[in-house]
Design a protein around this nucleic acid. Structure first.
Lengths: 203, 203, 203, 203
DNA sequence: TATGAATGAGTCTTCATTCAT
DNA sequence: AATGAATGAAGACTCATTCAT
């Protein structure tokens, strides 16, 4: 047993590995892990099937690397904008921003988001990845609030609830389209709710 | 193609079909759709592999029928207890009951819940099923509240948000075990939040 | 994981399994383990590739079962004729018989013999099989001699040496055809040698 | 097809080829031909995979060249010591020496010996190589004996038998470890046997 | 000469589905 | 209705060999 997995050094090889990750991750996100085969991945990446196994241990490995590379874009795009600044007075505004940010992102990565959440439920490593990032995100938001003189009073729990509310809302808005649901109203309700959660900080 | 799918009429045949659904659904919930094969299902059901295809078009069909038969137990056990009675004064109590109900259910159907949610994300028909039931559940709760003189004021949206909050909480409690999260506090926060949502009705 | 390996019960199924063993073992013996693929085996056996894996864990399993079934015929055909009777006076005759028996067998199972010996050298389980049978054969001969009043005086070692001499001779006669070797003379020399080995018993 | 196989002229190139032969032969001897791949060989030799095919037609070619280069060391180490001198009176001693020589060699090249014998049985060219060398060895011993006034009386056959006896013995001692076998006794029996073979010469 | 990335045919194995009984 | 043997297409992965640099 030799050769194991090669970490490509040449520029061209690096690009090829990237291509495979992208092709593989895209296809998996679009059609599901079990409905995507290595031949397809290779073809989509414009390489031979053999080369795939020089860069990845197995098909699963492609998924994981894809997740690590593109997962944040899909789940926690905010983590990228490290410079979120806001003023207590604008809490409303921040929330609206966040919600829009999330909704747009859900729309863009629509299927991917679903597919990955699907694996979060059935695969340990994917789950680990997701929960680790969720934690990062929680801490990230907690920091922002602390920096704005929010009291550290069950803050962790509050942020978690807040994220849940937003996620739920965005999910609803993006997918369900429940006919009898007014999303503007729902959005306002959610914002009010979150504000109530932090009422001690916002008075 | 002859014989197509037979709808069993005899008692014994009906029981056989039930057995297959149960065995199949159980296994799929436990190990996932792609990690369960028809031979296993047949064996678990105590029937031959051939017979499976007299009652079901294909493997997928078993999943769907299983979902229709057992899905409610897993996702919306409350729907069974059609006689939920409560008094506005006891709203707190109702919420606590619901939360406990959900948490217990999450614990019991732990893996099943995850596995099916996984398919909700990757399979149209499973998704349809889930969202249809979610709708039922929403309406069910809405009715209860209306019967208790809650105002029909964005009630639909409020119930949805409430369900999201509870689901999130229960999920958190059952799986994550985030070390730095106090679940009693979180539960109280969620209850307060829901009460705030309905503050106009509870004064 | 289910279905494991099925032990066929129906007559037809048993025959099918036999066919696969025979086809597989024949091909492996003829072309070598690594030069025989499962598709070939299935085709030679007149079955589909799938069925092979219902009766055998894997390709290797076919080899082992083949070995257990046909190995004796190839290596120790004498073990079949449990009723070897001889008289000390006819020791010569017995030896000549054995030698002819072996030579004929080598000729018949020519390639098989070689191929299996090849695996004895490279595969633990094949080796185990071979050495176990060799031991049986040794004990078998020892018993025969003891029954003929040969002294139990380093008998085990003597039999082993005797078998080695015969095997060597037969191998030589069957394959090498060293031009400058007279096989009649060689045979006689070997017989004399063996008799010398047992000289204490034959006086 | 261009360039075919290049016979290296430069010192450095020659050394590279040697390295490949050694690495390849070592690995093949240790793990078997089919369990050794060219990438491993190249890595072990400290060269690139591509270069291998400039010195060797194919993988098989490496084996053959390795055999020609190192085979004698493994099978007929005596051939190296061309100056074997002995006196009839010391025939015993010579035999013991030979036996020890062989046993040691078996021990040293343990796996290699097995692996190559394995290929002797399955590969024509390897077989040819082996039998050619065996012939050389036979002639070598024949010469020695003739030089010591052994009669040229079926000498060829006798030497062959002698070699077989020694090889068998050494094999037994090195590998089998049959529990109920006394190797000292066996060794003595073999020596006696060989002496009996040449009794006309040793009186 | 030399590299090591790339190729793609070939291999074992699985499994949903069909079929002979 | 029922069995379970049989099918064969499909998939993950390997590796000898070639090729671009």
């Amino acid at each position: 047993m030799i050769g194991n997995i090669r970490e490509p050094k040449q520029q061209r090889a690096i690009m090829k590995k990237e291509k495979i990750i992208k092709a593989g991750f895209d296809l998996i996100c679009e059609n599901g892990y079990y409905n995507t085969n290595t031949a397809e991945i290779a073809k989509e990446a414009g390489v031979s099937t053999g080369i795939v196994y020089q860069y990845f241990k197995d098909k699963y490995d492609i998924l994981i690397e894809g997740l690590e590379k593109y997962g944040n874009d899909i789940f926690f795009p905010m983590l990228k904008t490290k410079d979120v600044k806001f003023d207590k007075k604008d809490f409303d505004k921040l929330l609206k921003q966040m919600i829009n940010h999330y909704i747009n992102n859900h729309k863009v990565s629509n299927v991917a988001h679903e597919e990955i959440m699907s694996m979060v439920h059935s695969d340990k490593r994917v789950a680990n990845y997701y929960y680790k990032r969720e934690l990062e995100m929680t801490n990230f938001l907690k920091e922002i609030l602390l920096n704005n003189n929010f009291k550290n009073d069950n803050l962790y729990e509050k942020v978690h609830i807040m994220m849940g509310l937003i996620d739920n809302l965005c999910h609803e808005v993006t997918y369900h389209k429940h006919d009898n649901m007014n999303y503007d109203i729902m959005t306002n309700l959610v914002i009010e709710n979150i504000k109530n959660l932090f009422k001690n900080d916002l008075d």
